[in-house]
Design a protein around this nucleic acid. Sequence first.
RNA 1: GGGCAGGUUCCAGAGCGGCCAAAUGGGGCGGCCUGUAAAGCCGUUGGCUCACGCCUACAGAGGUUCGAAUCCUCUCCUGCCCA
Length: 306
Amino acid sequence: MEVKSALIVLVGPTASGKSELALALAQQLGGEIVSADSMQVYRGMDIGTNKPSPEERRRAPHHGLDLVEPQIEFTVAMYRRYALGALSAIRARGRIPILVGGTGLYIRAVVDGLCPAPPADPACRQALAREAALIGADALHARLRQADPVTAARVHPHDARRVIRALEVYRVSGRPLSAWHQQTEGLAGAWEIRQVGLLPPREALDARINARVRGMVAAGLVEEARALHAAGVSRTAAQALGYKELFAAFEGRWGMDEAIARIQRETRRYARRQLTWFRRDARIAWLTPVEAPRDLVPQVRSLLDC
RNA sequence: GGGCAGGUUCCAGAGCGGCCAAAUGGGGCGGCCUGUAAAGCCGUUGGCUCACGCCUACAGAGGUUCGAAUCCUCUCCUGCCCA
């Protein structure tokens, strides 16, 4: 029986201190960090995504950052392909990969896999959107019930995005999405996966988020956003918290103070969604963050037995 | 000092005699999530029982009425206009 290589996974909501903890861990274990963050993949989006600084990146190798220009529509599948490559390269070097991030779907795509269903088909999607507008969301969902009852049962009729994707997969491939799902393969067979999560109390987390946003503004977030706004970014990149609200301010939808208040609020909400995503995963061992995340390293090591 | 428009549940804002614990939106809280995921979607949001029901609520105090957030009177606030 061969010995599997270890993969450390570190998750948690924004501002929980996971990047800092990951860095300390990487330094002590001789690890390399693989970021699982849907927005840090974009070049030039640095302040608003709280990307590790050049100095921090020198302290340990980082992967998954600055993968594409902000004009690109990045997707989970692109991320997964990249991350799997990075993981094997790190293993080949004899080092320990530490997968760190707050994008639950990205983590899942790596750890538990992503089904091999066909990618998005813009034309098909557009056609489906038109149909939805014509016959209504409930009728579209009824069609999904015909094509793929399993998926229809778990997707709410109003969740247009998922109803359309499921129908899209069926039309393009002739197979229901739920059938594709069965071909999903995770990493558990090849890696010894150890997951740790940072679970801060809400009140403390909210306070940290508010302070962090103020810090970003002080660090030049508005200027960074203005440049991106002028250059134009993809729809996906334009969804990034911080940028989204500032873009609207540049377009006159509201003032700067309002934009900043919204960034704080939306980030708090985002953190809440992250918590509900990760919290139910029984494989994650939870830790309560402390002021200096590196102080948690011994705890993590004993928890992970490494 | 006079005139007009207003004061509604956390906020904004409908309601203008019973169908109102009160539309709708926002916010809060909870949840979902496989190719847009920092996105999208769902539920819930006075209290007690959490089943029927009961209690407390629509600035305050009176009044009209079988019945008032809704009508009348006075008081207190807010905005605008005229002095």
